[in-house]
Computed example of a mutant assay.
Amino acid sequence: MNAPVVFDGHNDALLRLYMDGSQQAIDAFLAGTGPGHIDLVKAKAGNFRGGMFAIFPPSPKGAIDFDRMSPGGYDCLLPEPLEIVFAQAATIGMAAILFRLERGSNGRLRVCRSVADIRAAWAEDAMAAVLHIEGAEAIDADLAMLDVLHAAGLRSIGMVWSRDNIFAHGVPMRFPSSPDIGDGLTEAGERLVKRCNELGILLDLSHLNEKGFWDVARLSDAPLVATHSNVHALCTVSRNLTGRQLAAIAESKGVVGLNFATAFLREDGAMNADTSIETMVRHLDALIEALGEDGVALGSDFDGAVIPAPIGNASGLPALFDALDRRGYGRALIEKIAHGNWLSVLERTWKAPVDRR
């Protein structure tokens, strides 16, 4: 089948470019000569037309060692919480990279702040990039930095990556494990939820522990969204969503983006590229059963995880859609999963900010 237009819920291309630290890496992204899962050439080949470009402030001593995520069970040691000065420097650095990509792309990539911006980018054959934060360590308890980042284009935020911060407690990488680990939101976290609602910023629940999830569900007036998570019943890693969580997302008319990270797909919880597309499709089947056809999307985690070898990188996305076509999904449903459901939930979440003056 002809590959549909793809809008993706999560990628870590900015982190990859930031960690490289060179102008050559940015140039390679634009030219399609770099090693990552995403660049402008691979994206065009797979009809990957945009998505949430995550800012993830890295820990000075590294994050998760994927080699630990092996069959038989694991409990990955998480880095210590970040200092705000370090997190702000990294956040500004990655945001700058996205704007440099826009500037250097000759119109082939645009930073988008509304669904109208996304559609306008697509009308001119440009990639639509949305600024997203994964882990709010750069934001102060008074939320002044949130207002600054929103003005710069921030439209989606995960309060935590799996390490804890002043707002919430992340869910660690454990297998097998429930996501019910640790306390819920702090008072500062509750203020962050309310201010994101006021600004129309999407709240991403993907790395939040279960108590935090339920706090957001109680406080937020927006659809519940997990940009890159899978089904706990099929892969019992702590990062995945339980049936009860999926039911709450469905009730809110929210969305879950299928995470391509193999450790969150496989029954054995292993980060192993030798993973079939059929394993991905089983999660999509279960997500559709739990959320309905309007609640399922993609959240690849490109450039941030080991993904199934049959996909490989953004250019391999048509293989997934071919599998869905053979499964009998039908073109209309495939279009919803590929981009339609993301645009719908973003239209219902992004709104004019509330002026508190």
Rank of each mutant, 00 (worst) to 15 (best):
A286W: 03
R113Y: 01
L291Q: 07
E210I: 13
R163M: 12
Y74A: 03
A144H: 11
H228Y: 10
G34C: 12
M94I: 02
A3I: 12
V256H: 02
L291W: 08
G269W: 13
A217M: 07
I311T: 08
V85L: 13
D8P: 05
A129G: 02
P172W: 03
G62V: 02
A290M: 02
A261V: 04
A233Y: 00
R239K: 05
L346C: 07
N11C: 13
I92K: 14
V281A: 08
G73R: 10
M145K: 13
I55M: 06
F66G: 06
V255P: 10
P310R: 08
E134V: 06
T262A: 00
E267W: 00
V345P: 01
M145P: 06
N313L: 02
A248S: 10
N341S: 05
R163D: 07
N106I: 04
L146F: 09
G51H: 15
L224H: 11
K351Y: 06
R113T: 12
A3V: 09
I139N: 14
G170R: 05
W350A: 01
F99V: 05
L185F: 01
S162G: 07
I307W: 00
T227Q: 06
M145G: 09
A273F: 02
R357C: 09
L143W: 10
S59F: 02
T186S: 15
E293D: 15
F7D: 01
I181M: 03
V255I: 09
W122F: 01
M19W: 14
D164I: 09
H169Y: 11
G153N: 11
D294C: 03
R326D: 12
F66S: 14
R163S: 14
A123T: 12
L317C: 07
F167Y: 13
G93W: 02
F167Q: 06
